[in-house]
Amino acid sequence: MLQKIDADSKGTIFRKRAVVALDDGLYENYPHYRKYIKEAVTELLGSEISKNVVIEHSKDGSGIGAALLAAANSKYAREF
């Protein structure tokens, strides 16, 4: 998703700090899983870009994500 957002914004996302919120029991309760997620981000994006990606645990991340998606969709629906 970050790569898609970066492409849509003409390369401005990866020059800034990006926070990814996870609402996941594995991420919350198992420190090794956190390490694996960070390693996967580094493998996908490269070490330089992944330094700007911060992964945080978020309670009710699913609900917040759904609200953000609905808000973003309604914004774009009005523009077209």
Rank of each mutant, 00 (worst) to 15 (best):
M1C: 03
M1Q: 08
L2I: 14
L2D: 00
Q3F: 02
Q3T: 06
Q3M: 07
Q3G: 12
Q3I: 01
K4L: 10
K4N: 05
I5F: 12
D6P: 01
D6L: 02
D6Y: 01
A7Y: 07
A7K: 14
A7T: 09
D8F: 03
D8M: 11
S9A: 09
K10V: 03
K10E: 10
K10W: 03
K10A: 10
T12I: 06
I13S: 01
F14M: 08
R15M: 04
R15Y: 03
R17A: 07
R17V: 11
R17H: 07
R17W: 02
R17M: 11
A18G: 00
V19M: 09
V20E: 01
A21K: 07
L22P: 01
L22D: 03
D23C: 15
D24Y: 01
D24A: 08
D24Q: 10
D24F: 04
G25C: 03
G25D: 14
G25I: 03
Y27I: 04
Y27Q: 06
Y27G: 00
E28S: 08
N29K: 15
N29G: 08
N29W: 06
P31F: 10
P31W: 09
P31V: 07
P31Y: 09
H32M: 10
H32G: 02
H32I: 11
H32A: 13
Y33S: 07
Y33V: 15
R34Y: 04
K35L: 13
K35N: 13
K35Q: 14
Y36C: 10
Y36G: 00
Y36A: 14
I37A: 09
I37L: 12
K38Y: 06
K38L: 13
E39G: 05
E39S: 14
E39I: 08
A40V: 11
V41Q: 03
T42V: 13
T42G: 02
T42N: 09
T42Q: 14
L44D: 13
L44M: 14
L45Y: 15
L45T: 05
L45I: 04
G46F: 08
G46P: 06
G46Y: 08
S47K: 15
S47C: 09
I49Q: 05
I49L: 12
S50A: 15
S50Q: 07
S50E: 06
K51M: 12
K51A: 13
K51S: 08
K51P: 01
N52F: 03
N52D: 05
V53L: 10
V53G: 05
I55T: 14
I55W: 06
H57M: 11
H57F: 15
S58I: 05
S58M: 15
K59I: 10
K59T: 09
K59Y: 11
K59S: 11
K59H: 10
D60K: 13
D60F: 14
D60H: 14
G61D: 06
G61Q: 06
S62H: 14
G63Y: 13
G63A: 11
I64A: 10
I64Q: 08
G65K: 00
A66V: 01
A67D: 04
L68I: 14
L68R: 09
L68H: 11
A70L: 13
A70R: 12
A71H: 11
N73W: 03
N73T: 04
S74L: 07
S74V: 01
K75A: 02
K75Q: 08
K75L: 04
Y76E: 04
Y76Q: 07
Y76F: 11
Y76K: 11
A77E: 12
A77F: 08
R78F: 03
E79D: 07
E79F: 00
F80A: 01
F80S: 00
